[in-house]
């Protein structure tokens, strides 16, 4: 199983990432993807993302290994953008390749839930009246808890 992990300021091309995963093994029969978008509600102008270089990559790699141990996977791609992202921008991609859809769907959701609660990223919201740091949500913690 190969895992590609990228923390980057630039955008990503979902169809190119799917094509890369489809090519890793001849028996890939499914690629499940989740794309997160900066949601433009409540007057949000942009998000600025900060992370902990080194720890971020380690945490994501650890959870990619755990996903690979739980399900039968052929490839994982996790891309998370940092820096200033305006509403409508792509912010995160999790893509999982497997022989069958069940494993691909489950591993994709597992990885997203852990990205939300364990990967060291922090979002700052920018609105007309200034900036403030986003508070962590209990619903995200509960979503990650169910995989224990």
């Amino acid at each position: 199983m190969t895992a590609r992990i990228s923390i980057q300021t630039g955008d990503f091309d979902v169809s190119r990432e799917i094509a890369a995963l489809t090519g890793v093994q001849a028996h890939v029969g499914a690629v499940a993807t989740f794309t997160g978008i900066v949601r433009g509600d409540d007057g949000l102008i942009a998000l600025t993302l900060e992370h902990y270089p080194g720890m971020t990559e380690r945490e994501i790699a650890r959870h990619a290994d755990e996903a690979n141990a739980r399900w039968k996977l052929d490839g994982i791609t996790v891309i998370h953008r940092i820096g200033r992202l305006e509403t409508g921008a792509q912010i995160v991609l999790v893509a999982v390749a497997s022989s069958h859809r069940g494993d691909a769907f489950a591993a994709c959701e597992f990885l997203m839930d852990y990205l939300k609660t364990r990967a060291p990223f922090w979002k700052q919201e920018e609105r007309a009246d200034g900036t403030h740091w986003v508070e962590a949500r209990e619903s995200d913690d509960r979503a990650a808890e169910r995989w224990r």
Partner: peptide, 10 residues
């Protein structure tokens, strides 16, 4: 050693 708020990525 790093100190930070609860994480808010994804």
């Amino acid at each position: 050693v790093a100190f930070f708020p609860p994480v808010t990525g994804g």
